[in-house]
């Protein structure tokens, strides 16, 4: 592994200052489950690695604040998947967090890290899109609350500006009931990177949100406000037409070795239909 300098700030302001000073020569270290691999294979060669885990303002936490559930940047997948509030109000996120890698990985991997890594296949991205999450970022210019669907640009690239650190992910407390589910396609039942990720949420007003990833440079959110998808009695042809509109942005890479484009596109439709059915059932069960 290439050597680097390691910094362990204890206050957010120190971290911001370090980031501002080193710019793209610095990488943030949260769970390390992505970064360490890149450091070892040389795809990341930072001069400075900044460990965020001792920053007082970024300790792991899940708290309710100002009409949102706020998940601190240091919070790991294990705790998100197990949290009662997440499981009750954002079950698809709990499901997604529960399938990121293995137990060992989930004990380290953070939600913020998963989001900032900006892999199109990030398991948590579709659920975050459906739940209307925002990324809370603190930088030299102050604090921003960035809607997640504008946060992802493409693989590995987000809209974070130089010197900005994500301190939390927040999701508005739902104002109406929603049934939602996270599904994915993998090559085996054991832990795996997904070749399709998908989250479908149907709410009490008949709005269907469908977000999917790993079939293009960034995860995508589509919304059906017509009520057709949410209606179990609607004809298949009508539903099919809406699905096609929602999936129109899917453009899987032909170079991926995990799955070929036509399989991914077909699975998008299979998963979409299955997830919709489950979401409707969950909404009905309350």
């Amino acid at each position: 592994m290439h050597t680097f300098a390691y910094a362990r700030p204890t206050r957010l302001a120190e971290a911001v200052a370090l980031l501002e000073a080193h710019g793209s020569d610095a990488r943030l270290l949260a769970g390390g489950t992505d970064l360490i691999i890149r450091l070892r294979d040389g795809t990341a060669q930072p001069g400075v690695v900044i460990d965020i885990k001792r920053i007082a303002e970024m300790r792991p936490s899940i708290r309710e604040e100002a009409g949102c559930l706020v998940i601190g940047a240091g919070t790991v997948m294990t705790d998100i998947a197990a949290d009662d509030r997440v499981r009750r109000s954002y079950p698809a996120l709990a499901e997604a967090a529960a399938v990121v890698g293995s137990v060992q990985i989930r004990n380290r991997a953070t939600l913020a890290g998963n989001v900032c890594n900006a892999s199109p296949a990030a398991d948590t991205a579709p659920a975050l899109l459906v739940y209307g999450a925002r990324v809370v970022a603190v930088g030299p210019a102050g604090t921003r609350h960035i809607p997640i669907d504008t946060f992802f640009v493409r693989s590995g690239v987000t809209t974070l500006a130089r010197g900005e650190i994500v301190t939390a992910i927040e999701m508005p407390v739902p104002d109406r009931a929603m049934g939602a589910v996270h599904v994915r396609r993998t090559r085996r039942r054991g832990h795996d990177l997904a070749s399709v990720t998908l989250c479908c949420g149907v709410d009490a007003a008949g709005v269907t949100r469908l977000a999917y990833g790993s079939v293009g440079p960034r995860p995508v959110l589509g919304v059906d406000e017509s009520g057709v998808l949410a209606d179990p009695a609607a004809p298949d042809a009508a539903k099919g037409a809406i699905f096609e509109r929602l999936f129109a942005d899917a453009s899987p890479s032909p170079r991926s070795m995990r799955a070929s484009p036509d399989y991914r596109l077909a699975m998008l439709r299979v998963l979409g239909a299955r997830a919709l059915s489950t979401a409707i059932d969950r909404l009905a069960q309350g």
Binding site: G32, T33, I37, R40, D51, S102, I105, N107, R108
Partner: peptide, 26 residues
């Protein structure tokens, strides 16, 4: 050495981790 096989598993503060993905300083 990529956190897939678990042969390097240790317990850190009560939780299992892949020690190949934890810097010693952490």
């Amino acid at each position: 050495l990529v956190g897939e096989c678990g042969a390097c598993t240790v317990v850190l503060d009560g939780r299992t981790v892949d020690s190949c993905l934890v810097l010693a300083v952490e």
